[in-house]
Simulated assay, not measured.
Amino acid sequence: MSELSKKDCVSLEEAMKELGVVRNTFNMYLVALGIPKHKFPLDRRLFITKEDFSRLKKFLEENKSPRS
């Protein structure tokens, strides 16, 4: 398997902002879907892969509850 690079990932902060969720909710989704967090040397941010981010977005869109 090829090595993961930053360009293949999105930071947790960017993902939370795009999805409009807070950290606790976001972490709950990651655990529920089994999505791992990645850290790169000399960077204090955490990342998830773009593929996992797409999977998370799809999950949220499919399970969005209609607001009345």
Rank of each mutant, 00 (worst) to 15 (best):
R23V: 04
E61H: 07
Y29D: 09
F26W: 00
S2G: 14
F40G: 15
F47A: 01
C9P: 12
C9H: 11
H38Y: 11
K57C: 14
N63Y: 03
M28H: 10
H38W: 08
L42G: 08
K64M: 02
K37I: 04
P36C: 10
C9N: 10
N27L: 08
E61G: 06
D8T: 04
P41C: 00
C9V: 12
K58V: 09
K50H: 06
R67A: 00
L12G: 08
N24C: 08
L46W: 06
S54D: 13
I48G: 08
L19Q: 01
L46K: 11
K50D: 07
M16K: 04
V10I: 14
F47C: 04
S54T: 09
I48R: 05
P36T: 12
G34D: 13
K57P: 12
L46E: 10
F40P: 14
T25A: 08
D52H: 06
F59P: 10
F26Q: 00
N24I: 07
Y29E: 11
D43K: 05
M28A: 11
P66N: 11
E18I: 03
G34H: 02
R55W: 02
L30W: 01
N27K: 11
A32E: 13
F53H: 09
F40E: 14
R44N: 12
K37L: 05
K58C: 03
L4G: 14
G34M: 00
K50L: 06
C9G: 14
E61T: 09
P36M: 04
K39M: 03
E61D: 11
A15M: 06
F59I: 08
N24T: 15
R45K: 10
S2H: 15
E14W: 00
L19I: 02
L19R: 00
S54F: 04
G20L: 03
K64N: 02
G20E: 08
V31F: 02
R45Q: 14
H38N: 12
K57Y: 09
N63W: 07
K6T: 13
C9F: 07
H38L: 07
F47V: 00
K50S: 04
E3L: 15
L4T: 15
V21E: 01
E61A: 10
K50T: 06
K7Q: 15
D52C: 06
K64S: 10
K58Q: 11
P41H: 03
S65P: 04
G20S: 03
L19P: 07
S2N: 14
G20H: 03
G20Q: 10
G20W: 03
L46M: 09
A32K: 06
R55V: 03
L60M: 15
K6E: 15
E51Q: 05
K39W: 05
P41I: 00
L19T: 01
K6Q: 15
A32V: 02
S68Q: 14
H38V: 04
L33K: 06
R44A: 14
S65C: 01
L60S: 07
T25K: 10
E18P: 02
C9K: 13
V21P: 02
K37T: 08
L56S: 15
R55S: 13
L56F: 07
G34K: 05
T25F: 02
I48Q: 12
